[in-house]
Amino acid sequence: MSISMSLFSPSTHLPTLSPSSSYPKPHFTLKPCLSLRPKTPLFTTRASAENGAGAAAAATAVEAEPKVPEPVAAKSESSNGSAGPAEEEVKVVSLFEDARWVNGTWDLKQFEKSGKTDWDAVIDAEARRRKWLQDNPESSSNDNPILFDTSIVPWWAWVKRYHLPEAELLNGRAAMVGFFSAYLVDSLTGVGLVDQMGNFVCKTLLFVAVAGVLLIRKNEDVEKLKKLLDETTFYDKQWQATWQDETPGNPK
């Protein structure tokens, strides 16, 4: 199964930028009574199979869920770039498929390795799925809801995998740093948000804002924090601008 996965992935990221540029804009404009269906001609001009978003919408307008065997998908991959694949094929590639992905979640039984779930493989699989979806956004469906929740992967699996000092940061220390930074940001911007609201949600948000940044990458912390600070104060300035010309003695 992972073979078919890797068949999918290599080409997925290449054309991500193309849909926007190759997009035939005029088509989409203010036509008052355009129905959702007859979109198909719009996409035939495209060369690659990966402009999932629109293509899927158009091609699958009639049947709810096209399930077409994989080999076809592989074929359309190989023709990547050259003469546009037929629409039938376009529709195939646009749905994520993996034998371990069953009813909206990863079938953990298939991830078993010597009696234990191989969480690393689950993380890998999910990363691939998300990557795929990023390039080929899928329609949401009420009949086939996504049930997978990253929190089912135990925390130690993440820690083990990213056996980094970050793991340590993760518990406690980051929280502390983040929390106090939040207060620091708060007092620096001079707005007294934390005090004013007396509300923990705000504190939490500030805390999240800072901690989130801390956790992304350690060495970029400073830069990111600076940027964040700038950004937050920017909004404040926009609000305070109207009070500017009120300096006493201003002839205005």
């Binding site: 036509k31 008052p32 009574c33 355009l34 129905s35 959702l36 269906r37 978003a53 629109g54 899927a56 919408a57 699958t60 307008a61 709810a64 956004p137 899928e138 329609s139 949401s140 469906s141 009420n142 009949d143």
Partner: peptide, 14 residues
């Protein structure tokens, strides 16, 4: 529209 596709299928833009 694509993300909501299944749920608005067959719709007419007013």
């Amino acid at each position: 529209r694509n993300r909501a596709k299944d749920k608005i299928l067959g719709g007419k833009i007013l």
